[in-house]
């Protein structure tokens, strides 16, 4: 064993140790939080009718899995969210392409996009429900709406920042605007589109929950509203926790997909 490889191993060992220590404290905080919550509820320091408790939440989840199809509610929310951010990313890319190819259209629509972007989309949810109807479609539309404008703006600005010389290269090889789009602008901006997809997952969740709170008969947003109306705080807390796990899983999934695609393309 020579010195440098020993040092290298020491270096790796230290980094691993550090990682494990961080993970340990992260888990410890979580466990401590729930333990403290449970302890306070048991001791009567907090009113478990209002604050619920981890035990009650677990019990609620356990019973709802069998009687109230908790898995179905979770599935509905995930499906609506995924539909929301997928459609929004596709639509955003499509509209960005249209605006990119005509700087004239781009200039005309710029102020509208800026205004639409600053309108709180949740304020539009009741209108959408009236227009689209009291069903799952309007939830998807609300989810879509929360993220589509910002997708258009982000993707369009990425398109417009494509290296001018790469575009010139296509023209020197005898290409036209279509070649510029398909051979440079789209492939060069795959990372930007993937990044938009990532941002959209979070926004799409907001839209879905708002929509569900307003109209749905299923989904975690519905459970939250229903639970709060019948004062089942355990049901509300459980839904929030499932929502947190769900959004983390989705986000991580997109990040893994992003890394795969970008490392393949770039």
């Amino acid at each position: 064993m020579n010195d440098s490889s020993f040092n290298q191993r020491e270096f790796i060992r230290k980094i691993r140790l550090r990682k494990r220590t961080v993970l340990f404290f992260q888990c410890a905080i979580l466990v401590l939080f729930f333990a403290l919550w449970q302890f306070c509820a048991d001791m009567g320091i907090i009113d478990s009718f209002i604050f619920s408790s981890p035990k009650e939440i677990l019990f609620c989840a356990y019973s709802m899995i069998f009687t109230n199809s908790l898995i179905f509610h979770t599935f509905v929310t995930s499906a609506e969210t995924v539909a929301g951010f997928l459609i929004s990313t596709l639509l955003g890319t499509g509209i960005a392409v249209i605006l990119w190819q005509s700087s004239f259209l781009n200039e005309i629509f710029q102020p509208y996009l800026v205004v639409l972007n600053s309108v709180p989309k949740t304020a539009l949810a009741p209108i959408i429900i009236v227009w689209v109807g009291n069903n799952i479609n309007s939830i998807i539309v609300v989810a879509l709406l929360t993220s589509v404008v910002v997708s258009i703006l982000n993707i369009l600005s990425a398109f417009n920042e494509t290296d001018k010389n790469m575009i010139k290269l296509i023209y020197t090889l005898g290409g036209n605007k279509k070649d510029v789009l398909f051979k440079v602008v789209l492939p060069a901006n795959i990372p930007a589109v993937m990044n938009t997809l990532k941002v959209n997952t979070g926004l799409s969740f907001i839209g879905t929950i708002i929509g569900e709170m307003l109209v749905a008969k299923y989904g975690l947003g519905y459970l939250i509203i229903y639970g709060s109306q019948i004062f089942r705080l355990d049901m509300v807390m459980m839904s929030v926790i499932i929502l947190a796990i769900l959004s983390t899983v989705l986000y991580k999934g997109i990040v893994i997909l992003e890394n795969k695609i970008v490392s393949k393309v770039m």
Binding site: N165, M166, L169, T172, L173, V184, A188
Partner: peptide, 23 residues
């Protein structure tokens, strides 16, 4: 051009065929 502008999302070979592809 002043710089090579080889596209990172293509292999070197497929970069070389870009002109023929466009035509």
């Amino acid at each position: 051009l002043q710089q090579d502008y080889l596209f990172e999302w293509r292999s070197v070979f497929s970069n070389a065929l870009l002109g023929a592809e466009i035509k």
